[in-house]
């Protein structure tokens, strides 16, 4: 694409990690889930706990591509109350003390469409957001938003799926920016387990067609699974497994139990440890070499 974003907090982070020969850990939480206070605690703790990239869910009433875990977390956030401005406000506050960790927003198009694609892109850039993933905007429909994102130096991150065939993949890669997010399972988030050999074969095939970093998400739940993926992928995304800890740690009125933030962050530390040590010591993986 013309005028694509070539230099950003996100590209710098991937370059740094490439030098260290390790993958990025991308952690997903939903903004204001289960309430603004716990969300802010998590946001504050994630960089130290080892999240290399923070993905924030912008809740939508009808999250069609998400499984039960993220659906519940979206519902909780909507009950707690959350607008696009709330999400951007939290990012802007974070940027006062954390300048290096990229933040990408994940959501569905309608709230952004209502906000205004131009207005949203400008506000997101001002808040210190680095990229967006809009689940229901395939390349065919994305330009309405993407040209505003590019004008504000924001990445639009596209998904490639197991169903994305050879004829279609170039179209997705042509639009991709920041990194390519490979959906590791045929299904919604958090419902199936990713098959490591299938995923590594697809990632290896995609490497031949793009220089962009390749991330893998959907169906990765444990530090061990994250470590396996981190051997060949440039980024590993964990969402539902983190969100489930929140689901299990609140009462019927969405009040967090004492120590919930620490439990979530401890899990992130485990994941980070798995990702950071994935390529150390063990047998050298043929496809290693984060990057093209």
């Amino acid at each position: 694409m013309s005028a694509s974003v070539t230099e950003s907090r996100l590209t710098r982070r991937f370059e740094k990690l490439k030098e260290k020969n390790r993958a990025a850990l991308v952690t997903f939480i939903t903004a204001n889930d289960p309430d603004p206070k716990l969300f802010r605690q998590l946001l504050e703790g994630l960089p130290t706990a080892g999240a290399d990239i923070i993905e924030l869910g912008m809740p939508f009433s009808d999250p069609m591509a998400d499984g039960p875990s993220v659906q519940l977390s979206s519902q909780r956030a909507l009950l707690a109350g959350v607008s696009i401005d709330d999400v951007l406000g939290a990012v802007a506050d974070m940027r006062e003390w954390e300048m290096d960790t990229p933040v990408i927003l994940m959501g569905y198009y309608n709230p952004i469409y209502r906000y205004g694609p131009a207005e949203f892109s400008e506000a997101a850039a001002n808040a210190g957001v680095d990229g967006v993933i809009i689940v229901d905007l395939p390349p065919e429909e994305a330009e309405e938003l993407n040209h505003h994102l590019r004008a504000n130096n924001l990445h639009m991150i596209f998904l490639a799926a197991p169903t994305t065939d050879e004829t279609r993949l170039p179209r997705v890669l042509d639009h991709a920016s920041g990194f390519v997010y490979y959906v590791a399972v045929k299904g919604v988030t958090g419902t199936k387990s990713a098959d490591i050999s299938e995923v590594s074969a697809r990632v290896a095939a995609m490497r031949k067609q793009t220089d962009l970093p390749l991330g893998v998400g959907f169906g990765i739940r444990t530090a061990a699974q994250a470590a396996e993926m981190a051997q060949f992928a440039d980024a590993v995304v964990i969402g539902s497994a983190i969100v489930d800890i929140i689901t299990d740690g609140i009462d019927g009125d969405r009040r967090p139990q004492p120590g919930l933030a620490a439990r979530v962050l401890d899990f992130v530390k485990d994941l980070a440890n798995g990702v950071q040590t994935a390529r150390l010591g063990g047998a050298e993986n043929a496809s290693t070499g984060a990057g093209a």
Partner: peptide, 19 residues
């Protein structure tokens, strides 16, 4: 592209797009 003026289109997740 499946558009009736402003309306219509294909706003689906990538997994469904090939289908």
């Amino acid at each position: 592209m499946g558009h009736f003026g402003l309306f219509g289109g294909r706003y689906v997740a990538e997994t469904l797009m090939p289908l």
